[in-house]
Simulated assay, not measured.
Amino acid sequence: MGIDSLPIPVQNVTDRTSNPFGMRPPFDRTPPGDRTAVFGYGDANADFHLIGDYPGRHGGAETGVPFTGTDSGRALQDVFRAVGFVSGPPAKPICENLFCSYIHMCRLPDGRTPTDEEYDDLERYFDAELRAINAHILMPVGEQATDHVLREYTTQRHRIDLDMAALHATEIRGRGFLIVPIREPTEWEDTEREALVARLEAILGRDYRQTKGVATTVG
């Protein structure tokens, strides 16, 4: 079943960790035998949604799991283990209250960067999955994912300078979401891991589930 035949919102399928909503990539441009896509992975009822760019940048080509097999993925797993969202083996982590996905799930030859048209091709698939997860906190990683999330899920993109060092581990109110941008982990300075851990712990320490109601009126 492709996403075209699924109702929106999609009912959560909580017993499936990988691709819980049965997404099918709309195109396959990889060599025969290669993995066609790195689908969303984790807790389908999560309050926190980690959003990356594409498999060639943030990993998963070998494992099928977002944010695995790369320095970026290892750095992020370390953060989410510290706050209690991730346990188990690095290549196939156990996620609790965390869902991970990419704005461009499909693999491309040699891990090349998607074109603007290819990003556009997958936008509705990502959007459908994001709304099915219905998380409270969106955490885009890197400039491309952050730009997309701010444009599509807030009214503030025109007022925000896309300076990832300045935006890292801050809070931005969106249309029904709280956005916590994350700088590309391979570019982190000495204090940026600790800043992200501290931000997540602060959010967990308050009634963040009220975020959706608050953000709807502010974003």
Rank of each mutant, 00 (worst) to 15 (best):
2 G>A: 10
3 I>Q: 11
6 L>I: 01
7 P>L: 08
8 I>N: 05
9 P>C: 06
14 T>L: 11
16 R>N: 09
18 S>I: 14
20 P>W: 04
21 F>L: 14
23 M>W: 12
25 P>N: 14
27 F>V: 03
27 F>K: 02
28 D>P: 01
28 D>N: 15
29 R>W: 03
31 P>D: 10
31 P>S: 11
36 T>R: 14
36 T>A: 13
36 T>W: 02
37 A>W: 09
37 A>P: 00
38 V>I: 13
39 F>Q: 10
40 G>Y: 06
41 Y>A: 06
41 Y>C: 12
48 F>H: 11
48 F>P: 06
52 G>N: 06
55 P>Q: 05
57 R>M: 12
59 G>D: 03
60 G>Y: 07
60 G>D: 10
62 E>Q: 08
68 T>E: 08
75 A>V: 00
81 R>Y: 03
81 R>W: 01
82 A>W: 02
83 V>I: 12
86 V>E: 08
86 V>D: 05
87 S>M: 01
90 P>S: 09
90 P>F: 06
91 A>N: 09
94 I>Q: 13
97 N>W: 07
97 N>D: 15
99 F>D: 07
99 F>C: 03
100 C>L: 14
101 S>D: 15
101 S>T: 12
106 C>E: 13
108 L>M: 14
110 D>I: 00
111 G>V: 03
112 R>L: 03
113 T>E: 13
115 T>L: 11
119 Y>W: 13
120 D>S: 12
120 D>M: 07
121 D>I: 02
123 E>I: 03
123 E>Y: 11
129 E>Y: 13
130 L>Q: 14
130 L>R: 15
137 I>N: 02
140 P>L: 07
141 V>C: 02
144 Q>F: 00
145 A>G: 00
145 A>H: 00
155 T>V: 03
159 R>F: 12
162 L>V: 01
164 M>S: 05
164 M>K: 10
166 A>S: 13
168 H>C: 07
168 H>S: 08
170 T>M: 05
170 T>A: 02
177 F>H: 15
186 T>Q: 07
187 E>H: 10
191 T>F: 05
195 A>E: 14
197 V>E: 13
199 R>N: 10
199 R>D: 01
199 R>V: 01
200 L>Q: 07
202 A>E: 14
203 I>F: 04
204 L>N: 09
205 G>I: 01
205 G>Y: 04
205 G>E: 04
213 G>Y: 08
213 G>H: 07
218 V>L: 14
